[in-house]
Structure formats: structure tokens, C-alpha cells
Design a protein around this nucleic acid. Sequence first.
DNA 1: CGTGGTATTGACCACATGGTCAATATGGTG
DNA 2: CACCATATTGACCATGTGGTCAATACCACG
Lengths: 193, 193
Amino acid sequence: MAQAQALSSGLQQLTHRSIAAELGVTHALVVHYEPDIESLRARTCEALLMGEFDEVVGTLNGDADPVSNLSRVIGLMSRPGREDFAGVWLDGWSLGRRDAAAARAVRAMMDRWQGLVANMLSRGTGAGVFADVDPQECAWEIIALLDGLSAHTLVGYGDPQHYSARVAAPVEARLGLARGTLNATLAPVHGPH
Amino acid sequence: MAQAQALSSGLQQLTHRSIAAELGVTHALVVHYEPDIESLRARTCEALLMGEFDEVVGTLNGDADPVSNLSRVIGLMSRPGREDFAGVWLDGWSLGRRDAAAARAVRAMMDRWQGLVANMLSRGTGAGVFADVDPQECAWEIIALLDGLSAHTLVGYGDPQHYSARVAAPVEARLGLARGTLNATLAPVHGPH
DNA sequence: CGTGGTATTGACCACATGGTCAATATGGTG
DNA sequence: CACCATATTGACCATGTGGTCAATACCACG
């Protein structure tokens, strides 16, 4: 419902009337149940980002190998067709500029991602598979790279075919991995549902 | 004028009436001279980004050392107080989602930055100072990292004090430089005017 | 002087937004 | 049945937007 609309048209286009139209009711009714549209937007944003996160985490299910974990995350985040979620992130940042609550929510989501990656990194460094980096700091760098990628996606900068490799390369260098180790050619494993 | 307003309030808040108010005239007059506000926004965005670019390029004036060049760029882009320009980038990406012309303009700006960095990289690899990377690809990665940084800036994610180091670290790793080589503690050299 | 072009205005329009409010259905419970 | 809570509506409001238009003011030039 609201989430699909936000995905395809952007959070700012999510309005009492747009929801009402899709539901086939009056906008007054929507107002009745959702009196504060700003909050609805923030919550929708949060729900969408949380959904994406959970989906990715679900994909890692059971797999404990930090290399394949990282590879999968990179593959999923740089896959073609992720433009809509990139848009949600962008809307979230935009929203966070004026709405303190939204900013807090977005930061919390970023923390989740950072934690996920940091976890992989610390497992990898512990096992001696990765170079000895500070997992927290390095996770931040990877998140920043992925966020930059989202931005690029939205204005169609660069060839999407190269996205995965372009994220993988610097991460591999940072972790002392051989070139191509992290460049998953689109993870086949069941895929997101 | 218009640029200052876009910087402080965001491109979307740049409106016929907001300009008129600041100029102390009627909004009809503004319409008379600037009939298409969308185009004004796009042009303002472009001008601002171009201004930032030129300012940074100006700072490098005469210095041919790729290491100090890169270090300065990283320092400038991750300095505290750059939130407003980060906002312009964000607005640009946002604008580019629906306005094809704006997207083209933003992509052109990204190309400029990518070219600037690629140039540094190819000089560095040529001189054997940097590891042997593909300058074009690697420049892209660095740009993505900086763009991700801009996004983080806007929602206040992470400690701004660490921004510079966090960008420097992965780049150093990628280029085979010693830790800290690129972590300029705020370039003192005259500074941007 | 007056004639013409530019600067500037106020009044207006259509449209969309968030939101309120009183008035109805509608359906279950005592 | 009567009653009450909930669902739902249409009408309305203030505000903001982009934009048009006819009417002035003003100033230079012949």
C-alpha cells in the first residue's frame, strides 16, 4: 500500500490524497486514521529500509563465511533494479535534514548496516582471512561507499554493470583480498523472496 | 542571492516568492525574468557545484604532487561546515530523479570530479607513488566514497572529526600508501577564499 | 513634447497540500 | 427496537505553489 507508493514515486509524493486515491476512499478518511502525514512518511521510510535490511540478513541465513557474506551484501546492494530502494535512502536523508525524528531513524538504520558489516569484518579479521583492520571504522567506510553508490544509481551515473566490481575492488584492497574475491556475479542462492 | 538561499534552505525552497521576498519586489517580477523555476533550480544547482569544484581546483593551484593533491581534496570534502554543499549534492540527486536535464548536469559535475581525481591518480601511478590501479575506475570509487560521506553529513551520522580519516584510510589502502599519508589535519594553505 | 520600450505592480487563476468539522451511514449490543 | 461507537463522507479552510495579464510607472531618445 503506502510502502509500494513511496517506493515507486518517492516519499514526498506520499500524501493523504494519493493514498486515498489508491484505496478508493476520501482523503478525509485517510486523515482520520493518519493525522500526521510527516510521521507517516518517516515511519514508511523506516519500515522500507528495515524491510530491505531484514531481507538481506535473511539471505545470509546460516552462512558464516565472512567472505561470502560480504560478497553477497555487495552483490545485493549494487544489483540493477535497486533504484527504488536507493530512492528511499535518498528521501530518508532528505527528510532527515529538517525532521529530527526522521534523522534519528535513518541514523539507526545506518547503525544496523554498519553493525552487520562490522560483524562480518571482525569475524574475518579474527579468522585471519582479512587484513587487520578496525572493524567498526572499516565498516563505516564500506557503508559510505554503498551509500555513494545509491546516489550514483539515481542519476544514472556510470554503467550499472560495473557497480558491483567498483564496490568490490576498494573493499578487497582494504581487506587484503585478491582481486575479484568479493565480486559476486549476482548471487544465485535462492535470491530475495 | 539565489545561490545563498539554495545553500541555506535547499533547492526546493528556492521559489519565485522566496526570491522576491529577499529582493524586496513582487513575485510577478521574478517570474518575468525567470519564467521557469525548475530550470532556475537546475542552473543554480549546477552553478553552486561548479563553484565548489573551481574553488577546490584553485586550491591545488601549482601543486603537482599527487599525494598532497589527493590529501587536500579529501581534507576539503570532509571538513566540518561543508553540510550546506552536501545538501546541494543531495538536492541535485533528488532533482535528477525527475528532471532529465538536471540529471545530465549532475552527471557532468560528477564527471568533472572523477576526471580531477583520475588525473591525480594517473600521475601518481605513473610516478610509481601509487599502486598500479586503473585511474578511471579508482577515481570513481573515491568519488562514491565522498558522495556517501555527503549523505552521512546531512543526517549527522558519525563524528565529523573522524570523517577525514575515514575517507583517507580506504584510499590509502587502495593506493598502497602508508596509514595517515592522506589524512590532512585540515589543509592550512591559504584555505578557500 | 511625446513616443516607445523596459521595470514593476496588483489582481487574478488553477492546482495541490495538510487539516477541520459537522453530518451521515453502518453495524453490533443491550 | 433504541442506542452507541465506528467508518465514511462532502464541504470547507488556510496556505503555498507556478504562472498569466492588463495596467501602470519610469526613463531615454527623437
